[in-house]
Simulated assay, not measured.
Amino acid sequence: MSELGTVTDMASGARGKAARPALWLTVLSLTAFVLLIALGIWQIERRAWKLALIDRVEQRVHAPAQPIPSPASWPAVSAASDEYRHVSLKGRFLHDRETLVQAVTEEGPGFWVLTPLQRDDGTQVLINRGFVPSERRDASTRRDGNPDGRVEIAGLLRITEPNGGFLRNNVPQHNRWYSRDVAAIAAARGLHDVAPFFVDADAGSQSGSGPIGGLTVVSFPNNHLIYALTWFALAFMLAGRIFVTFGGGLFRRKRFVHEQAGGSDAGARRTGSDAGTIVEPT
Rank of each mutant, 00 (worst) to 15 (best):
L89E: 06
F93K: 01
L36T: 07
W177T: 01
L23E: 05
S140N: 10
R47L: 14
L30F: 04
P211C: 01
G276F: 02
K254S: 07
G110H: 10
R60G: 07
N170F: 04
A186I: 06
S219V: 03
A32L: 01
Q173L: 09
D82F: 14
F243I: 11
A268H: 03
A52I: 04
R46G: 01
Q59D: 02
V34L: 06
S273E: 15
P147K: 02
A235V: 00
F197V: 06
D274Y: 01
Y227R: 09
A154N: 11
G164L: 12
N146K: 14
Q260Y: 10
R241L: 13
S78F: 02
H192F: 10
V257I: 15
F198Y: 13
P69A: 06
A203V: 08
H192L: 13
T160G: 03
P116G: 08
L36M: 02
A275D: 11
R85I: 03
H224G: 04
R143K: 14
N222M: 14
A76P: 02
I68V: 14
D148T: 13
P64M: 00
F251T: 11
R158G: 02
N169T: 09
M1E: 08
S29M: 03
A14R: 13
V132F: 10
S70Y: 01
L215M: 03
T8Y: 10
D200E: 12
V257R: 08
V194D: 10
Q260C: 12
A76C: 05
G13N: 11
M1V: 10
F111Y: 13
D96H: 13
S29T: 10
N163W: 12
V171H: 15
L36S: 06
Y84G: 12
A48D: 07
P281A: 02
L4I: 13
S140Y: 09
P172Y: 02
R97V: 00
G267N: 03
L250R: 14
R136M: 14
N146W: 14
R119Y: 06
R269G: 03
A22W: 00
L229M: 14
Q124E: 07
E280L: 14
A183L: 10
P21W: 03
R142N: 12
R56H: 05
G5T: 04
N175W: 01
R168L: 10
A235Q: 10
G262M: 11
L39V: 05
Q260V: 07
D138S: 09
G276E: 07
A32F: 13
R168Q: 14
L114V: 05
P221N: 14
G208R: 01
A203K: 15
A233Q: 02
M1K: 14
P162F: 02
V27T: 09
I54W: 12
R20A: 11
G165M: 06
L23V: 09
W24H: 03
A275K: 09
S29Y: 04
V87C: 05
H95C: 01
V7F: 07
G204K: 15
G262V: 09
G40R: 00
A63Y: 01
R92I: 11
R270Y: 08
